[in-house]
Write a protein that binds this DNA or RNA. Sequence first.
DNA 1: TCGCGCATGTAAGTTGTTACATGATTTA
DNA 2: TAAATCATGTAACAACTTACATGCGCGA
Lengths: 179, 179
Amino acid sequence: MALKYALLSCLNESRATGYELTQLLRERMGNVWNASHQQTYRELAKLRDEKCVTFEEVPQSDKPDRKVYAITERGRGDLAEWVNEPSERPRVRDPLLLKMFAGELWDIANLKAEIEGHRIHWQATLDRYLAIESRYFSDPENLPFHYRLQHLALLRGIDVNRSWLEWSDNALSVIEKEK
Amino acid sequence: MALKYALLSCLNESRATGYELTQLLRERMGNVWNASHQQTYRELAKLRDEKCVTFEEVPQSDKPDRKVYAITERGRGDLAEWVNEPSERPRVRDPLLLKMFAGELWDIANLKAEIEGHRIHWQATLDRYLAIESRYFSDPENLPFHYRLQHLALLRGIDVNRSWLEWSDNALSVIEKEK
DNA sequence: TCGCGCATGTAAGTTGTTACATGATTTA
DNA sequence: TAAATCATGTAACAACTTACATGCGCGA
């Protein structure tokens, strides 16, 4: 449902191909919205039908042709309408936390390995977000308002990954004592 | 997919009806796994077919009959297998954060109202989790291991809601300056 | 030569949401 | 008297995932 608006938000900043949109969601907006490339292409086809986006085919000699999408007035209208409607909190569905409720069924070595594996991922993601911050948002006080809002979204990503790192250290020390 | 294991985890602790399982997911496990009652009933029917659960009909005079479900050996086996397999991180899809990427389309009063609305919810959820903590996990050091793991899951819920509260204060002060 | 990045999609299946449906008792 | 709680589901639809499909260029 909101994938529509995720794509329109990106296209509202600048035109892009389906491939680039998929990358954007995975990288810069990884802590905000996620979609596979299949989902992205399907949604773009729908947005074309709804006349929320237009596209231009750009032939390339060495690589496959690119379809560069752009937002239309109608697309911007839909986006503005959605933005001003109240939205709900996403529902949490976290398999790792769920596993904490099947305690006595764990092989403790597996539990430790799993948390350590995720820990590496959280550290890498945190580093990535911190790099984005220092590149684009190093002086937040003096940024234009709409960049400040984007910075607020990024701050969530930073905070969430930091707090998972702390949590994993805590969890690992609990496990260590049990061994 | 993991809804199966969410239900089996609950039933592994104690037998329950579909209604009670739905409540459990919403309340005690709200920061772990969410499912509507329709999903729960559908999944329970599937688990019955797979012989992962059995049920017993308990007639009631004043209220509708209860179907009390219990986990089977096969269900426990499936759960133990799943628990020891590595799992992936859930993909983030947060409409509120997404809205931060459509900055200039906001009516600033709507943005402020939306964040304030969510803030009330985060505060209430935090209070609820803190109440659970003080009731069941007030002395974590001396708890049996499988309760310590459940406490770790609860700590995530506490931390996440605390950090959203801080975030919303930060966001509201950014908005205040812009007005 | 094997995999990765670029670039696009289709098809089938699973999971999750929304709407509909019933009906008694308790609480405001 | 209206709404909430208890208690169960079905049906239709929307969203998301997984597997399949193609093909070139580049670097290890």
